[in-house]
Write a protein that binds this DNA or RNA. Structure first.
Length: 424
RNA sequence: GGUGAGGUGGCUGAGUGGUCGAAAGCAGCGCUUUGCUAAAGCGCCGUACUCCAAAAGGGUACCGAGGGUUCGAAUCCCUCCCUCACCGCCA
């Protein structure tokens, strides 16, 4: 959520930053929100005056009554004021709700240095690591490999839950578990994150806090009766863990890592990148979340991205890092790096992590603050990134590690977790 | 799921219709005095919104949330949420 004061006081700046995202609608919403804001404040000022009058007169009535004097005339006047108050009350709360709804629908301002561009084709490659493996056999993709070695069963999974679900089996299930444990250990023991195992079902307020709602409700799984949502990412429960809190500066930065399954409708993505286990309705992910003072958030963003990259380096998988241009940037993000691992089977880079700095955009929505050195309450900055998302990592890993005889060689770092050197 | 008890400021805890944004204590900050691994005294000490060109200074709202009664609600009524205890059920 953008600061209404910033919108009021630096309207042109806000508009020009928003315009880089490429949506005229967002820019138009600024005028709309300013109009409603002016209305709201006008009504509120009048309301406050009336409240003050009523308060004063009511006290006078109290005084008169205790002295045994008549207060009928005053009471009539206050009753009149009361009527006006309830009218204005409605006006202010309507304007207030309108303003809030508008603000919730306006995306974050891209960072000043963000590459300008219309869509994903304009995302610059920031760096790449390793090289595409030279596989001399006919290269199998993860679906062929997985089927052949019985690592997962997509057909039977469909029997359980429909298309877009995975059921890992045997060595595949074990490899999934090994990867999760490997990543959790890496981030907790070497990168200093605190492990968390949060609920997967979260309340509506949390989904608003981390910007999944209200705008992206069609993409979420919800449980109508009790107003809970299946978290599409651990970002939601973990970031909201401190919602509505004022953290002491001494406790910053907060660094959390959590493994959770993630649930996404992926509405409208049918047929796009849907082969095998690349885009599914439920997948596992290890997520990194940081809550920091504003001064440090960009440094923390770099190190968070590096922490996620480390997973691929240790597994010896070729990847590249791209920065999202203004037109491709997520709704709440000011700056995002995507980490893309190389998939030999698809001859393409697959996104396995998206590392974002939301600045205070989420913190405002969840009223997440800290006490700074001067004792003032200020909004924190929140960041997150996958570290990493599993199915795609799984796919790239087995494709990269395939041997001429059709077996898969397990990377050295995974041996303690997997317990065998190969899958055949 | 049932029954009961509760939800007040950073914490503890008063307050059952009128000068209560809220006593008191603790913690915190500042000053004074004495002086030494501390004590005493005094003062300050919530958040949000809003008015004013700004500062100074006003104002309004907030006692779990939302409604209602009333001239006036922390205080009375209703609904909901949460916490605790006991019972039931249960991985």
């Amino acid at each position: 959520m953008l600061d209404i004061r910033l919108i009021r006081e630096q309207t042109d700046f806000v508009k020009s930053r928003l315009a880089t995202r490429g949506s005229d609608e967002d820019v138009a919403r600024i005028d709309e929100v300013l109009r409603v804001d002016a209305e709201r404040r006008k009504a509120e000022t009048a309301l406050q005056q009336l409240n003050a009058d009523r308060k004063k007169l009511s006290k006078e009535i109290g005084g008169k009554r205790s002295r045994g004097e008549s207060s009928e005339e005053l009471e009539a006047r206050v009753r009149e004021i009361g009527d006006q108050i309830s009218l204005l009350n409605e006006q202010t709360s309507t304007a207030d709700e309108q303003q809030k709804a508008l603000l919730l629908g306006i995306p974050n301002l891209p960072h000043a240095a963000a590459p300008i561009g219309k869509d994903a084709s304009a995302n610059p490659v920031v760096r790449s690591w390793g090289e595409k493996p030279a596989l001399n056999t006919p290269v199998l993709d993860h679906v062929a490999l997985g089927t052949q070695l019985r690592l997962f069963d997509l057909e039977r999974a469909a029997k359980l839950s429909g298309s877009g679900f995975i059921c890992f089996t045997g060595a595949g299930a074990r490899l999934e578990r090994a990867l999760i444990n490997f990543m959790l250990d890496l981030h907790t023991c070497e990168h200093g994150y605190l492990e968390m195992s949060p609920p997967f079902l979260v309340r509506r307020d949390c989904m608003i806090g981390t910007t999944q709602l209200p705008k992206f409700e069609p993409d979420m799984y919800g449980l109508e009766e009790n107003q809970l949502f299946l978290a599409p990412t651990a970002e939601v429960p973990v970031t909201n863990f401190h919602r509505e809190e004022i953290l002491p500066a001494s406790e910053l930065p907060k660094k959390y890592v959590a493994y959770t399954p993630c649930f996404r409708r992926e509405a409208g993505s049918a047929g796009r990148e849907t082969r095998g286990i690349i885009r599914v309705h439920q997948f596992d992910k290890v997520e990194l979340v940081k809550i920091t003072a504003p001064e440090n958030s960009y440094a923390e963003h770099e190190s968070l991205t590096a922490d996620a990259e480390r997973v691929l380096q240790l597994l010896n998988l070729h990847y590249r890092v791209i920065e999202l241009c203004t037109g491709d940037l997520g709704f709440g993000s000011a700056k995002t790096y995507d980490i893309e691992v190389w998939s030999p089977g698809q001859q393409a880079y697959l996104e396995v992590s998206s590392c974002s700095n939301f600045e205070d955009f989420q913190a405002r929505r969840m009223n997440l603050r800290f006490k700074d050195g001067e004792g003032k309450n200020r909004f924190l900055h929140t960041l997150n990134g996958s570290g990493l998302a599993l199915p795609r990592l799984f796919a790239a890993l087995i494709e990269t590690s395939q041997q001429p005889d059709g077996s898969i060689r397990i990377p050295e770092k995974l041996l303690p977790y997997f317990g065998a050197a190969e899958i055949r």
